[in-house]
């Protein structure tokens, strides 16, 4: 475990916590006659979180972590897998089923079809994989799908005029996690013998490039001290 990998995992964890915090705030604000300003913003505007992206992530973790009960790597590894599985499914549950959280979700803006991402990724995983076995194909599928799963969220951000702070932080943390993983691969390539994983690297690189545009606007909004807004 190197510092880049640990930092990457921690930013990934933080992104999940930011989302859970957001959901918690929406839940706890509802019904108050004089909500705090954060509650007010979160309840008045749509949440800006894409359910489509969250569902894709749940699918990514479910297909990637099939080995959780068969291969033991470390306690750290198992705990993190359980956290990502548990949090992704509970976030989906909250947005779909929780009375108040569901109301803050803007279904009409979040129109991306899962199908357009899932099917090509599945086909690609069937064609390009390291070993043609059930577990390996699903694992490869999870890599391809993770690479593009952020697209519905980025499209939603572009459509939402007011991006609230937490949603902006969430996407930023996810992008930072990917960028740190690339540094981790570079580090491992030079320090570990036979560390070559083309499928992981290329899909990881594609995934990180998808954030480039967002990063540009995120940092310029920080620099100019204005609210984050993506061009239409």
């Amino acid at each position: 475990m190197n510092i880049f990998r640990l930092a990457g995992d921690m930013t990934h964890l933080m992104s999940v916590l930011v989302l859970l915090l957001k959901i918690h705030t929406i839940k706890s604000c509802a019904g108050k006659s004089y909500p705090c300003s954060l509650c007010f913003i979160l309840l008045e505007s749509s949440s800006g979180i894409s359910l489509k992206t969250q569902e894709l992530y749940a699918l990514v973790f479910a297909t990637r972590y099939l080995d959780i009960f068969t291969d033991f790597i470390s306690v750290y590894n198992t705990i993190m897998k359980l956290i990502f599985l548990g949090s992704s499914f509970s976030i989906v549950w909250y947005i779909r089923r929780h009375k108040i959280v569901r109301r803050s979700y803007d279904k009409d803006q979040d129109t991306f079809r899962h199908f357009f991402l899932v099917l090509p990724c599945l086909l690609l995983a069937l064609i390009i994989n390291e070993k043609f076995t059930f577990k390996e194909v699903l694992w490869t599928f999870s890599l391809y799908l993770e690479a593009v799963a952020i697209l519905p969220q980025l499209i939603l951000l572009q459509r939402t005029r007011n991006i609230d702070n937490l949603t902006g932080q969430y996407v930023f943390l996810l992008g930072a996690y990917r960028a740190l993983y690339i540094l981790n691969w570079i580090y491992r390539y030079f320090t570990e013998p036979h560390y070559v994983h083309w499928i992981t690297w290329i899909s990881g690189l594609v995934q990180t490039l998808l954030y480039a545009d967002f990063f540009y606007y995120y940092f310029s909004s920080l620099k100019n001290n204005v609210k984050l807004k993506l061009p239409a």
């Binding site: 995992d9 790597i73 470390s74 897998k81 990502f84 981790n184 570990e192 036979h194 560390y195």
Partner: peptide, 10 residues
Amino acid sequence: DEEHVMKDEL
């Protein structure tokens, strides 16, 4: 042990 190296990432 190559496979294990790959799967140790999240």
